[in-house]
Design a protein around this nucleic acid. Sequence first.
DNA 1: TAGATTGTTAATCGATTAACAATC
DNA 2: TAGATTGTTAATCGATTAACAATC
Lengths: 217, 217
Amino acid sequence: MRWNKISDAVIRRLPLYLRVLDDLAQESETEAISSQELGIRAGVGPALVRKDLAWFGEFGKQGVGYEIGFLRDELRKILNLDSRLAVGLVGVGSLGVALTRYHLKRFAEDASFNLQLEALFDSDLTKIGQSVEGVPVYGLEDIPRQVKEKGLKIVIITVPAQNAQDVANLFIKAGIQGILNFAPVKLKAPDTVHVVDTDVSLELQRLAYYVPKTTNG
Amino acid sequence: MRWNKISDAVIRRLPLYLRVLDDLAQESETEAISSQELGIRAGVGPALVRKDLAWFGEFGKQGVGYEIGFLRDELRKILNLDSRLAVGLVGVGSLGVALTRYHLKRFAEDASFNLQLEALFDSDLTKIGQSVEGVPVYGLEDIPRQVKEKGLKIVIITVPAQNAQDVANLFIKAGIQGILNFAPVKLKAPDTVHVVDTDVSLELQRLAYYVPKTTNG
DNA sequence: TAGATTGTTAATCGATTAACAATC
DNA sequence: TAGATTGTTAATCGATTAACAATC
């Protein structure tokens, strides 16, 4: 399924709805949820919830709301999370290792978390050939082969800023489709490759703005 | 300085501009930069750059542009980054340790990175009393005292989801002003406390939407 | 049937872009 | 002076909210 040009603002709320539905499916007995309630739990207005969902189909029933299990399955399909998606990670430093652990834990605990971390990459010869939590570490020269063999679609980049563009290029050339970038640089990529940036320092600096400056010891 | 109600969309671009100016101050000889060039480097339109900056004052010169060193200093002041800001972190797991290392490295390398990580917190008795890269680990019962003594203004939360709201409450009670939350939950906090969320799984799931599903082995 | 809640259209709100006089 | 670029106002674009007929 592919819909033409749905706004990124909409897409970034879908995983939020999905999380609420996942929680709900466990904790509660209820079969259906209203846009009102779903909105409250996701931190979004009820009209916006309905509008977001309506882009993809008619999932609700008037007077009743949305059937939780059904809507969850539909959202999974929309987000391409209904089947396994192979993910790689490059930069096996402490952040890379932390994300690997986090990711595997999530994958083990949540049966429907279909993003599977299958290969790690690093340029450090002492790391190549080792494995982290059971995931093998390859050298950068193995990127084309591994991307192809394992069918990697997404790569998480946790290398230093000065190397980020270079390794990104290697993965783009190898045919990767999505990049989750933790390096503090604006990556250049063709339109066919989707880049999402996560920059901790930027977020912290933003937060600093909101901290009233009352000088103290 | 305090300006009334400037949009968050504006604030989140300021650290981006600041980073461009920091890079520029090092690499280049040029004294001034136009909104055009600054925009290209930050990935923002030139008119928007001018409008964003104009909220805070008149920093440019017609026909010339913005003096790099001057604008950088002004942005630092606006973002409260011109003086030391004490930061804490709770949840000394692998992500917490990784962020600690990352943070300290940044602090050591960049003289103007004034966000100083001063205290770690955890509930694990085997971790309390230890230190990570020279930063001491305290128990949760020490939160009020340490927040006060060290003047902690911001806390980074890297605890499991089910504990996040509880530890957040402890810090809010102790008088923290900002929270950078890595736990996958929507934290409830009073309006006086600013919360920024960073959720890796959410970002990955969002990325999955953009990955065309061509099933392969 | 009466009450509730959807999907959707129209109204509002806010953010970005275009345009240009002022001026370095 | 001539050329470039700012700060700002007006125009446009896009996203959210309000309202309500349709209907479960």
